[in-house]
Design a protein around this nucleic acid. Sequence first.
DNA 1: TACGGGCGGGG
DNA 2: GTGTACGCCCGTA
Length: 818
Amino acid sequence: MELRFSPYDFKYKVQNEKTYVYLYSKLEDGTKVCVMHEYAPYFYADISDERTITLLKDFTLDDKGNIARIVRVESIKKELLGKTKFFVKITVNYPKAVPLIAKDLAERGIQCYETKIIFIDRYVRDNGITPMTMIQATGDFSSKGGLRVPLFEASTVESVSKETHKSWKICALDIETYAVKKEINPHKNPILMVAFYGVDENDVVFRKVITWRKFNTKLNYLEVVSDEVELLKRVKEILIDYQPDIVTGYFSDGFDFPYIKTRADKHGVVFDIGADYSQLDIRKKAGFRSSEARITGMLHLDMLQFIRNIFGKNLKTDSYSLNAVSHELLDSKKHDVDINNLAHVWDHDHDKLEDFCKYNLHDAHLTYQLCKKLLFDILEFTKIVGLPSHNVIRMRFSKLVENYILKRAIEYNVIAPNKPIGSEMKERMEESIQGAFVYEPTPGIYENIVVFDFRSLYPTIITAHNIGPESLQCDCCKANKVPGREQYWFCSQDRKFIPTVLEQLVLRRVDLKRLIKDARNKNEDTRILDSRSYALKILANSFYGYLGFFNARWYCLECAASTTAYARHYIQSTIQKAETKGFKVVYADTDSCFLVLEDNLLDKAMEFMNEINFDLPGHMELEYEGFFPRGIFVAVKGSDKGAKKKYALMRDDDSIKITGFETVRRNWSLLAKEVQEDVLRLVLQDKGEEAVQYVKDIIVKLKNGTISPEKLILKTQITRELSQYTSFGPHVIIAKKLQDRGEKIVPGTVVEYIIVQGSGLVRERARIPSDVKKGEYDIHYYLNNQLLPAVSSIFSVLGYSEDDLLGKGKQTGLGNFF
DNA sequence: TACGGGCGGGG
DNA sequence: GTGTACGCCCGTA
């Protein structure tokens, strides 16, 4: 019989010398099924000697009781780094035999390829199975069972559609734990409550919070159990009964699931929620203190992973906390509950527990909404890269690019080059290349600035100039030298593999943009198309970085160096042509160019842009980015040189775009941040005098001691046990004081402090904010270490010195200021 | 300017 | 799991 299904989770098992892939899937009607399908593991070797090939046919190796065996040897014509020749495809008896046998052959001097490709990845790529999309199998349901879902034994499997299943049953989960003083310790402290928020295929909402403290409440979604053991059992039961396709969380890879597992293990609760009765699987990842949680038969999406690895570049927020991300993406925030109080409330103040239950559910709800909202994007990345969503959301750009290339390699009959090992990796890590060109601006305020930039500069350079490891230093195009890197050239005769697959991404996006435009005109929903366009863009933009990434299979530093060399060439020649045309260039960075119109009209600038575009090769294009009535470029501290990547522009609607000013980052007092932004705004509105007066007023307030102390708070995190500190910065001194007062200080505690007046070192004058009396703060410190550094570079552009702001003559030091 | 160490997310 | 291996930002010699 035939069966159509959408697979979302993949496992494999070896039975009787055969390897079966288990595709946990959703049928069109929404029910779950597991499809098993046989596939054989293999790799390639570079052997031309017939005698060796014959010998290989009987090759075996002892693998701790198992026999690793070569079951088939075939000669196949493949391309490796532009050279086509015969390789040997070696099929073995089980997946783990691949690295074993390959290692043995390598020790005999045989070069092997594709020996470290995950078996599941190999299976889905080779069989054209795109996870989450519709697949058709022929076979029969099995009577073997042993799973929580029906098992279908497939003899053939093929893709029937690139569309994903219409609706996925998603359930978000969030836990709250007992923690005193930010000490998170799953070995010591229990889970207090667990929230679920799910929606099924019929849009029926499922909300639940489970806790093990009885208290007075009317919350209808609350379920109270007797203790933590019962809570864990109930969580397990709910996940098994509800059977979501997708279970989502926020930092659930590193917090919620590992915590649940540790508590379950401690209490002897077997957390066997997998569709094959396997346990919740927490994998420690080497090197970095991180982990990954897996549940067989469910797709676990940790939204933080996707946002941090892939989607975050799209966001303005610099924090990936649930609160910050929800605020930006959902326009909704976490409940304003002080989580630090949970442990106290749990022990002593039960009537307030209701707030925490609501908070708990709300977090699960936010996570659900994030998952729902970003699922389009996740599915698009899944389809383009062609690997399970579980893996895709946990990849960084280099991996996404590499896996995309690996997918395309099958169509082009290309063998993947090996990853670097040992010394080669070290060498690669030591190499570096010249980067982008940045024009040094002359500090000042400019009017009528037009900004142009090259659309997708690096991808279009790579495709236009056929840049890739296969086309480097060809025999036929030696005259085709890279400007500024004359020792390199790339073939202009044959389109090669890497630029070809990149060009397809670029072209698909061009087509897509047309579709999006049409759809918008017809008022149709463009979310899926937008997601696809974003996925294509991000992947295309990552190719340049990939070519210079030390761990890349298609590493090619010459390619990366040539890409930036071309980029410098194009931006510099654009600047030159603009100047020839009578425009003043004020700034340029990588792919953008800032012109001042002066006597010209905007039309003239657009004409200039069109002229530039006429000469550009391939898909390269200079685009109009915007017009800004005013902009300010400041000098590097203590010099008259213009600072790079540090400027502010005002748009037509008076909004301002701030780039590079350091106080947007933390570790500065609120005072410094606010004043800096206000001053930039005033200056860009041509209200320089007002800005001076404004700062003078602030200085007066500061001197009078009337600045609100919370605007002066500095924050630093304690990172180790206090006894371990050898140098005593202000935050360490404060932490010790807090500890003496009975507060618990552990690594992770953030201490807040204010610098007060007096003699001695700054660290001796740090105080706990609640101890600081009105006007007690150190005026000198906040003036010279916070306020002035935040604004002096802006004022120096206007010709005001710090002394001018302080209302003093040039010779006066700060000594007689008080 | 190069390096060494801390940090992220979560309670 | 046919995977060794985070990157960035800050402060200090």
